[in-house]
């Protein structure tokens, strides 16, 4: 999903930077508020950032004969809500743009919009929907993180299609072309990311129950408190 440095026309690069900037600024405020109001959640905040740091570094083979990497932004969005991930995701992208020549500064806005804004909101929205429909925490986490991963790559495809319409097929034709590159390759990776997020949340529900209750991810267990 990293659009390489210089690979968006300047107008598109500027437009996506303007679109992503408010989310990132709002995210920075959300992170400082989170740390100030819930200092005990800082450890988990580190875990959320670390999860996306690891997953976005690992390129994995897929059934299509291409390789790609997961995003890891969904888990943090479910824990801390999407604005927090807008900042953490952008920090990851900045690290990769500056040190790894992966992505770029001119395309940071577009990449942040796909990776740190659309992905986390897709995760949070679908997670909330599953919970509202009566689904449990882990099914919600699975659906949310899978969709965050896929939504990020679909967004990248849309961004590239808008910038590079097909000579004959126009924007729709280009979208089909870029989805062909990104979307199918991403399906098994997204499922893998969903399974890893489920593993993470299984560990957290056992070991970080107080934090998850305070974040509203788990309901306080009334029977346990009555027993204690």
């Amino acid at each position: 999903m990293h659009i390489a440095e210089g690979f968006l026309p300047a107008a598109h690069a500027a437009g996506w930077a303007l679109a992503a900037a408010p989310f990132v600024v709002h995210g920075a405020r959300a992170v400082t508020r989170e740390v100030r109001e819930r200092p005990e959640a800082t450890l988990l905040l580190g875990a959320a950032g670390a999860f996306t740091f690891v997953l976005s570094a690992i390129k994995l083979p897929s059934i299509t004969g291409s390789s790609s990497h997961p995003t890891g932004t969904g888990a943090g969005a479910i824990l801390f809500r999407p604005p927090v991930m807008a900042l953490l995701g952008t920090v990851v992208l900045l690290f990769q743009a500056l040190l790894l020549a992966h992505g770029g500064l001119t395309t940071l806005g577009a990449n942040a919009f796909a990776f740190a804004v659309v992905g986390p909101w897709a995760a949070y929205g679908s997670y909330r929907l599953v919970r509202r429909l009566g689904g449990g925490l882990l099914p919600g986490v699975f659906v949310g993180t899978v969709l965050a991963d896929l939504a990020t790559y679909v967004t990248t495809s849309v961004q590239l299609a808008l910038a590079f319409p097909d000579a004959t097929g126009g924007i729709a034709g280009a979208l089909v072309k870029f989805l062909g590159v990104f979307a199918f390759t991403q399906v098994p990776l997204a499922i893998g990311e969903g399974l890893l997020a489920v593993l993470l949340f299984r560990v957290l529900t056992v070991n970080a129950r107080p934090e998850l209750e305070r974040l509203g991810v788990l309901r306080p267990a009334a029977d346990q408190e009555a027993a204690a």
């Binding site: 875990a47 670390a50 740091f53 690891v54 976005s56 690992i58 790894l100 070991n207």
Partner: peptide, 16 residues
């Protein structure tokens, strides 16, 4: 990058 992320994640989960 992966090692930094994995290290921090392992540290947090171990502490919890």
């Amino acid at each position: 990058q992966a090692a930094l992320g994995g290290g921090v994640l392992g540290y947090v989960l171990g502490r919890l």
